Amino acid sequence: MATVYYTIPPPVQLAPYIRFFWVLESDQPAYLHHAMADVCPELVFHYQGQFDEVKANGRREKSSISGLQGQTSHTSRFQINECFGIFGTYLYPYTLSLLFGIPATEIVDQYTDLNGLLGADGKRLEEKIMGAADNGERVQLLSRFLELRLKSISSRDSSSAICASMHLIMQSGGCIKMDALAQEACLSLRQYERNFKELSGFSPKIFSRIVRFHKAFNAYSPASVNTLAQIALECGYYDQSHFIQDFKQFSGLNPRHFFSGKAEGLDWMRV
Protein backbone atom coordinates (compact mmCIF):
# COMPACT_ATOMS: atom_id res chain seq x y z
CA MET A 1 0.00 0.00 0.00
CA ALA A 2 2.83 2.45 0.84
CA THR A 3 1.13 5.87 1.33
CA VAL A 4 -2.42 6.55 0.13
CA TYR A 5 -4.23 9.89 0.14
CA TYR A 6 -7.65 10.67 -1.34
CA THR A 7 -10.63 12.96 -0.86
CA ILE A 8 -14.38 12.31 -0.72
CA PRO A 9 -17.00 14.98 -1.59
CA PRO A 10 -19.60 15.80 1.10
CA PRO A 11 -23.37 15.30 0.74
CA VAL A 12 -25.07 18.17 -1.07
CA GLN A 13 -26.75 19.50 2.10
CA LEU A 14 -23.36 19.78 3.83
CA ALA A 15 -21.43 21.24 0.89
CA PRO A 16 -21.77 24.83 2.22
CA TYR A 17 -19.96 23.73 5.40
CA ILE A 18 -17.55 20.95 4.35
CA ARG A 19 -15.01 21.32 1.55
CA PHE A 20 -14.29 17.57 1.53
CA PHE A 21 -13.52 14.51 3.61
CA TRP A 22 -10.02 13.09 3.30
CA VAL A 23 -8.16 9.88 4.11
CA LEU A 24 -4.42 9.38 4.65
CA GLU A 25 -3.08 5.87 5.24
CA SER A 26 0.38 4.33 5.21
CA ASP A 27 2.04 1.00 5.97
CA GLN A 28 5.50 2.56 6.18
CA PRO A 29 7.44 1.85 9.41
CA ALA A 30 8.01 5.60 9.93
CA TYR A 31 6.25 8.68 8.60
CA LEU A 32 6.77 12.43 9.02
CA HIS A 33 3.94 14.87 8.28
CA HIS A 34 4.59 18.58 7.70
CA ALA A 35 1.45 20.70 8.26
CA MET A 36 1.26 24.26 6.94
CA ALA A 37 -0.72 27.43 7.59
CA ASP A 38 -4.38 27.11 6.56
CA VAL A 39 -7.53 29.25 6.82
CA CYS A 40 -9.71 26.13 7.13
CA PRO A 41 -10.13 24.06 10.31
CA GLU A 42 -10.27 20.26 10.29
CA LEU A 43 -11.86 17.50 12.33
CA VAL A 44 -9.30 14.68 12.55
CA PHE A 45 -9.69 11.05 13.65
CA HIS A 46 -6.69 8.69 14.00
CA TYR A 47 -8.41 5.32 13.59
CA GLN A 48 -5.10 3.46 13.37
CA GLY A 49 -1.89 4.53 15.09
CA GLN A 50 -1.25 7.76 16.97
CA PHE A 51 1.10 10.56 15.93
CA ASP A 52 3.48 12.57 18.10
CA GLU A 53 3.77 16.30 17.54
CA VAL A 54 7.42 17.26 17.12
CA LYS A 55 8.06 20.53 18.94
CA ALA A 56 10.59 23.17 17.86
CA ASN A 57 13.08 21.88 20.44
CA GLY A 58 12.75 18.33 19.09
CA ARG A 59 10.65 17.09 22.01
CA ARG A 60 7.75 14.80 21.01
CA GLU A 61 4.27 14.99 22.56
CA LYS A 62 1.56 12.41 21.93
CA SER A 63 -1.37 13.93 20.04
CA SER A 64 -4.99 13.03 20.81
CA ILE A 65 -6.83 10.26 18.95
CA SER A 66 -9.44 12.72 17.69
CA GLY A 67 -9.63 16.47 17.70
CA LEU A 68 -10.08 19.78 15.98
CA GLN A 69 -7.20 21.51 14.26
CA GLY A 70 -8.20 25.16 14.18
CA GLN A 71 -7.25 27.43 11.32
CA THR A 72 -3.58 28.22 11.70
CA SER A 73 -0.96 30.75 10.63
CA HIS A 74 2.07 28.59 11.41
CA THR A 75 3.54 25.19 10.63
CA SER A 76 3.63 21.95 12.63
CA ARG A 77 5.42 18.62 12.36
CA PHE A 78 4.03 15.21 13.32
CA GLN A 79 5.75 11.83 13.38
CA ILE A 80 4.75 8.21 13.81
CA ASN A 81 6.75 4.97 13.82
CA GLU A 82 4.03 2.52 12.82
CA CYS A 83 1.33 1.98 10.21
CA PHE A 84 -1.49 4.52 10.46
CA GLY A 85 -4.86 5.61 9.16
CA ILE A 86 -6.41 9.09 9.48
CA PHE A 87 -9.91 10.25 8.53
CA GLY A 88 -10.34 14.01 8.28
CA THR A 89 -13.00 16.58 7.49
CA TYR A 90 -11.81 19.77 5.82
CA LEU A 91 -14.24 22.53 6.83
CA TYR A 92 -14.90 26.04 5.58
CA PRO A 93 -13.47 28.78 7.83
CA TYR A 94 -16.86 29.76 9.27
CA THR A 95 -18.26 26.26 9.85
CA LEU A 96 -17.35 25.86 13.52
CA SER A 97 -18.86 29.22 14.42
CA LEU A 98 -22.09 28.42 12.59
CA LEU A 99 -22.56 24.76 13.52
CA PHE A 100 -21.08 24.70 17.02
CA GLY A 101 -21.19 28.33 18.16
CA ILE A 102 -17.42 28.32 18.69
CA PRO A 103 -15.79 31.74 18.10
CA ALA A 104 -13.11 31.28 15.46
CA THR A 105 -10.70 33.46 17.42
CA GLU A 106 -10.71 30.88 20.25
CA ILE A 107 -9.43 28.02 18.09
CA VAL A 108 -6.87 29.76 15.86
CA ASP A 109 -3.49 28.01 16.10
CA GLN A 110 -4.97 25.46 18.53
CA TYR A 111 -5.45 21.69 18.42
CA THR A 112 -8.31 20.73 20.73
CA ASP A 113 -9.28 17.26 21.89
CA LEU A 114 -12.73 16.36 20.57
CA ASN A 115 -14.01 15.31 24.00
CA GLY A 116 -12.99 18.65 25.48
CA LEU A 117 -14.57 20.47 22.56
CA LEU A 118 -17.93 18.69 22.38
CA GLY A 119 -18.16 16.82 25.69
CA ALA A 120 -20.20 13.61 25.73
CA ASP A 121 -21.27 14.16 22.10
CA GLY A 122 -17.62 14.24 21.09
CA LYS A 123 -16.87 11.04 23.00
CA ARG A 124 -19.77 9.17 21.36
CA LEU A 125 -18.76 10.42 17.92
CA GLU A 126 -15.16 9.32 18.46
CA GLU A 127 -16.27 5.83 19.53
CA LYS A 128 -18.46 5.45 16.43
CA ILE A 129 -15.78 6.69 14.03
CA MET A 130 -13.14 4.39 15.57
CA GLY A 131 -15.46 1.40 15.41
CA ALA A 132 -16.55 1.97 11.80
CA ALA A 133 -15.88 -0.82 9.29
CA ASP A 134 -14.40 1.47 6.66
CA ASN A 135 -14.09 5.10 5.57
CA GLY A 136 -17.37 5.00 3.68
CA GLU A 137 -19.13 4.31 6.98
CA ARG A 138 -17.09 7.08 8.63
CA VAL A 139 -18.36 9.55 6.04
CA GLN A 140 -21.95 8.48 6.76
CA LEU A 141 -21.50 8.72 10.54
CA LEU A 142 -19.93 12.17 10.50
CA SER A 143 -22.40 13.44 7.89
CA ARG A 144 -25.33 12.40 10.09
CA PHE A 145 -23.72 14.05 13.11
CA LEU A 146 -23.19 17.33 11.25
CA GLU A 147 -26.66 17.23 9.67
CA LEU A 148 -28.17 17.08 13.18
CA ARG A 149 -26.07 20.11 14.14
CA LEU A 150 -27.30 21.86 11.01
CA LYS A 151 -30.94 21.30 11.99
CA SER A 152 -30.33 22.65 15.48
CA ILE A 153 -28.96 25.96 14.15
CA SER A 154 -31.26 26.40 11.16
CA SER A 155 -31.85 30.03 12.14
CA ARG A 156 -28.23 30.94 11.40
CA ASP A 157 -27.56 32.15 7.89
CA SER A 158 -24.73 30.26 6.23
CA SER A 159 -24.98 32.52 3.18
CA SER A 160 -24.26 35.72 5.10
CA ALA A 161 -22.28 38.49 3.45
CA ILE A 162 -19.14 37.62 5.43
CA CYS A 163 -19.31 33.93 4.49
CA ALA A 164 -19.85 34.91 0.88
CA SER A 165 -16.84 37.21 0.96
CA MET A 166 -14.65 34.38 2.29
CA HIS A 167 -15.66 32.32 -0.73
CA LEU A 168 -14.79 35.23 -3.01
CA ILE A 169 -11.35 35.56 -1.44
CA MET A 170 -10.69 31.83 -1.81
CA GLN A 171 -11.96 31.81 -5.40
CA SER A 172 -9.75 34.77 -6.28
CA GLY A 173 -6.67 33.16 -4.74
CA GLY A 174 -6.43 35.95 -2.18
CA CYS A 175 -6.31 38.68 -4.82
CA ILE A 176 -9.31 40.91 -4.15
CA LYS A 177 -9.68 44.37 -2.62
CA MET A 178 -10.96 44.50 0.97
CA ASP A 179 -12.82 47.78 0.49
CA ALA A 180 -14.77 46.23 -2.38
CA LEU A 181 -15.77 43.29 -0.16
CA ALA A 182 -16.80 45.62 2.67
CA GLN A 183 -18.92 47.61 0.23
CA GLU A 184 -20.51 44.41 -1.10
CA ALA A 185 -21.35 43.45 2.51
CA CYS A 186 -22.86 46.93 3.12
CA LEU A 187 -20.44 47.51 6.01
CA SER A 188 -17.79 50.07 6.80
CA LEU A 189 -14.26 48.72 6.39
CA ARG A 190 -13.78 48.64 10.18
CA GLN A 191 -17.07 46.79 10.76
CA TYR A 192 -16.25 44.36 7.96
CA GLU A 193 -12.78 43.59 9.38
CA ARG A 194 -14.20 43.05 12.89
CA ASN A 195 -17.00 40.75 11.69
CA PHE A 196 -14.66 38.89 9.38
CA LYS A 197 -12.20 38.11 12.17
CA GLU A 198 -14.97 36.90 14.50
CA LEU A 199 -16.09 34.39 11.89
CA SER A 200 -12.75 33.35 10.36
CA GLY A 201 -10.24 33.88 13.17
CA PHE A 202 -8.05 36.07 10.97
CA SER A 203 -8.08 39.63 9.72
CA PRO A 204 -9.04 39.82 6.02
CA LYS A 205 -5.44 40.72 5.17
CA ILE A 206 -3.86 37.69 6.89
CA PHE A 207 -6.65 35.45 5.58
CA SER A 208 -5.94 36.62 2.02
CA ARG A 209 -2.19 36.13 2.40
CA ILE A 210 -2.66 32.52 3.54
CA VAL A 211 -5.12 31.85 0.70
CA ARG A 212 -2.65 33.29 -1.81
CA PHE A 213 0.11 31.10 -0.32
CA HIS A 214 -2.12 28.07 -0.86
CA LYS A 215 -2.61 29.02 -4.49
CA ALA A 216 1.18 29.01 -4.89
CA PHE A 217 1.51 25.81 -2.84
CA ASN A 218 -1.05 24.06 -5.04
CA ALA A 219 0.88 25.10 -8.16
CA TYR A 220 3.31 22.30 -7.32
CA SER A 221 3.67 19.66 -10.02
CA PRO A 222 6.59 17.31 -10.63
CA ALA A 223 6.33 18.20 -14.33
CA SER A 224 6.22 21.98 -13.81
CA VAL A 225 8.92 24.05 -15.51
CA ASN A 226 7.76 27.43 -14.17
CA THR A 227 10.33 29.58 -12.40
CA LEU A 228 9.68 31.03 -8.95
CA ALA A 229 9.21 34.42 -10.59
CA GLN A 230 6.54 32.99 -12.90
CA ILE A 231 4.71 31.30 -10.02
CA ALA A 232 4.86 34.52 -7.98
CA LEU A 233 3.39 36.51 -10.88
CA GLU A 234 0.63 33.98 -11.59
CA CYS A 235 -0.37 33.93 -7.91
CA GLY A 236 -0.65 37.71 -7.61
CA TYR A 237 2.51 38.57 -5.69
CA TYR A 238 4.07 41.98 -6.22
CA ASP A 239 7.48 40.42 -6.75
CA GLN A 240 9.49 37.29 -6.09
CA SER A 241 10.83 38.52 -2.73
CA HIS A 242 7.29 38.94 -1.31
CA PHE A 243 6.45 35.47 -2.59
CA ILE A 244 9.51 33.90 -0.92
CA GLN A 245 8.82 35.73 2.35
CA ASP A 246 5.20 34.55 2.56
CA PHE A 247 6.06 31.02 1.48
CA LYS A 248 8.70 30.68 4.19
CA GLN A 249 6.40 32.16 6.84
CA PHE A 250 3.41 29.90 6.08
CA SER A 251 5.20 26.68 5.13
CA GLY A 252 8.51 26.86 6.98
CA LEU A 253 10.19 25.99 3.69
CA ASN A 254 12.13 27.84 1.04
CA PRO A 255 9.96 27.65 -2.10
CA ARG A 256 12.94 26.57 -4.20
CA HIS A 257 13.36 23.52 -1.93
CA PHE A 258 9.61 22.85 -1.90
CA PHE A 259 9.22 23.00 -5.69
CA SER A 260 12.25 20.73 -6.11
CA GLY A 261 10.03 17.92 -4.79
CA LYS A 262 12.59 17.01 -2.13
CA ALA A 263 10.96 18.59 0.95
CA GLU A 264 10.29 16.07 3.74
CA GLY A 265 6.93 15.42 5.32
CA LEU A 266 4.91 15.95 2.13
CA ASP A 267 4.52 12.38 0.86
CA TRP A 268 0.72 12.79 0.68
CA MET A 269 1.18 15.33 -2.14
CA ARG A 270 3.14 12.89 -4.27
CA VAL A 271 0.72 9.95 -4.22
Rank of each mutant, 00 (worst) to 15 (best):
T89N: 07
Y94L: 01
Q140C: 11
L148W: 15
A120T: 14
T112E: 09
Q13D: 11
E42T: 07
L91V: 00
P10F: 11
L168Y: 00
Y90I: 02
M1Q: 06
F51D: 02
L91C: 03
N57R: 13
Q79V: 08
S158E: 11
E147A: 09
G116H: 13
S221L: 06
T3R: 07
E106K: 07
R144F: 09
Y5F: 15
P222L: 10
P11G: 13
H167R: 12
Q191L: 10
I231T: 07
S76A: 12
L168S: 03
F247M: 02
I80M: 06
S203A: 08
S159E: 08
H34Y: 05
H257L: 15
N115M: 05
S159W: 08
M178T: 04
A219Q: 10
F45V: 03
E42S: 11
R144M: 06
A161G: 03
I65Y: 06
H33M: 15
E137Q: 14
T112L: 10
V44H: 06
F207N: 04
P10R: 04
T72I: 05
G136W: 09
R138K: 10
V211H: 02
A30W: 05
F196L: 10
K197W: 04
I65D: 00
T112P: 00
L146R: 08
G261H: 07
S66C: 13
F51N: 01
V139K: 05
F87T: 00
H34T: 09
A229E: 08
Q171G: 02
G122Y: 14
S97F: 13
L189A: 08
P204D: 03
Q110C: 07
P93F: 04
A133H: 11
D52I: 06
Q79S: 09
M130D: 03
R194C: 04
L181C: 02
I18V: 04
L199F: 12
F217A: 01
I129P: 01
P11N: 07
K215H: 00
D134V: 06
L117P: 00
L68P: 04
E106S: 14
K55P: 00
G119S: 12
S241F: 13
Q245P: 02
F213W: 03
V39Y: 06
Q48N: 11
S143V: 04
V108N: 06
